[in-house]
Design a protein around this nucleic acid. Sequence first.
RNA 1: GCGGCCGUCGUCUAGUUUGGUUAGGACAUCAGCCUGCCACGCUGACGACCCGGGUUCGAAUCCCGGCGGCCGCACCA
Length: 578
Amino acid sequence: MQSRDKFKIISEMARRRGFFWQSYEIYGGVSGFITLGPLGSTLKRKIEDKLRDFFIRKLGLFEIETSVIMPGKVLEASGHVKAFQEPMVECNKCTRKFRADHLLLEFAGMNETDTEKLSLQNLMGEINKRGIHCPECGGNFGEPKRFLTMFETTIGPYSEAVGYGRPEAAQGIFVEYKRIYECARKKLPLGVAIIGHALRNEISPRQGPIRLREFTIMDLEFFFDPEKPQCTMLKEVENETLRLLHGKMVLKGVEEPIEVTVKEALSKRLIATEWQAFFMVLSKRFLTELGVPENKQRFIEKQDWERAHYSVQGYDQQVYLDRWGWVEVSGHNYRTDYDLKCHMESSGVDMTAFKEHEQPIEKEEVTVKPITSKIGPAFKDDTSKVVKLLSTLDPRELEVSFKKQGFHIVESFKILPQHVKIVHKKVKEKGKRFIPHVVEPSFGLDRLFYVTLEYAYKTKEGRTLLSLPRDLAPVEIGVFPLMSKDGLPEKARQVYQLLINSGFKVEYDESGAIGRRYARADEVGTPLGVTVDYKTLEDDTVTIRDRNTWRQVRNKVHNLPELFHAYFSYKKEFKELK
RNA sequence: GCGGCCGUCGUCUAGUUUGGUUAGGACAUCAGCCUGCCACGCUGACGACCCGGGUUCGAAUCCCGGCGGCCGCACCA
């Protein structure tokens, strides 16, 4: 490990210039929490807005906002309460900790379905029974304990009602699905996103913005009809390539991803659903726009045992980082109908969708109607029981029995044809109900934020330069008087005000020499510098300086607002500003 | 959470071995001078021993605890 890698250099710069730092520093700091400074909060917000634009606005999807605290029920239903706690045992001799269930898997040849069913006490019992000792030192284990990695609280001060900090935003969408579906006028496919904080009480978060206990994510749940899984926008992406490491490659230890078109990936079933492939392409494009070259990105498939409890196929989008190598920035999971089904079962609320058949299907419906005036006298006290039994019978079976033997026996009762009326009715089935399936792209905003900084970090002639994409730069324009005398500062302040009034984020700086001010601006990634010099006083022109190339062009002050708007929306390049 | 190493101005660091002046430097920041386009120069200012306890006449330095960092183990759904 190098002593001064990019993470360290960027962290130092970030602290100094106000991008991010560890929270609660005055109390010694708490790991797993960071504070975004003045520049950082703006940069992150801009990344967030770009994500919004890319995945929500342009696709016509919905965004909602839900609370961070969730009642226990929700996360019990979703399976998180179970999945987010691990049974641990500690070796009495060497104090090393192990997953109790993993020990049984590894040393006792049990399988996962067996270990999942075991309570803490049973786990202990199994470990003792099978004579498992500490694999490191051979010592005995103490009592197993549960480690819950969700933040737990009670809702209401005197209440017993357990609540958890949400470990993902997604559940907010599933629990509100019914109403959103109505807002969408019951149309599928339907995409819903949440951008917000999530909490995970990580055992040992150590990597700055890469692993936090409180972090920002975007969960996008895309609901579709599993019988109509075709992506309506596939044409737009099908010839684009993805760098994939699919499951079999990973198992073989292959490091170099294959490059396949979306079309191929789908036809070879490397990606399970079209929509998932579509979102993967979008994610690749998005990271490219944040400044990460394609060869520093890849998608790696998760193995069965690595996937979250709700996922049947998952790819992680990874970006190569200087310090940690490949790091996940987004996850793409096929959650099927898992979540809606869980919440339907647990809440009892129907969240199925209805779809019409293209042609109504004609069906003959057979029902049994008990004739109580006949059943009553025949069965006396058992009448109500018989009526009940009749309602559970298959009418067709009853009919066959009558035809064959003239009666039907249920339990000990002999039903005769005169006891019931069998009605045949032709009904048109107009459609059917189903639970939508879900593909989910999920982004870690804090990681995107760090990745953007790391890929923007450059040095030029021994100076630091953040080549942030211009639409993400927290400060857009620096305004400088060449000298802080001779009326130049006054004129520069007028230019500053003009640009501020035109809606730009501008910084005025007259401290130190001009070169130093350029250097300061470069270090925080300010794309453009406007310098007021002696010529400005004569003809009202200023120089405009490009952060990346340090080139300059000249233009009239009154042209600046329009030119800059065009520049920041990528309609003009720097050269065209003259 | 465990083990090893570590924690000094905003940043990077000297000093800790062997307790003893006003804790030194560089960069950055601010003020002034200088300066006609890329961290110029000069003068000055501001600014630190992670927190708590202990040992001692005296602790940045030694001891204990806490917090935090790095590396390894485990965890990362």
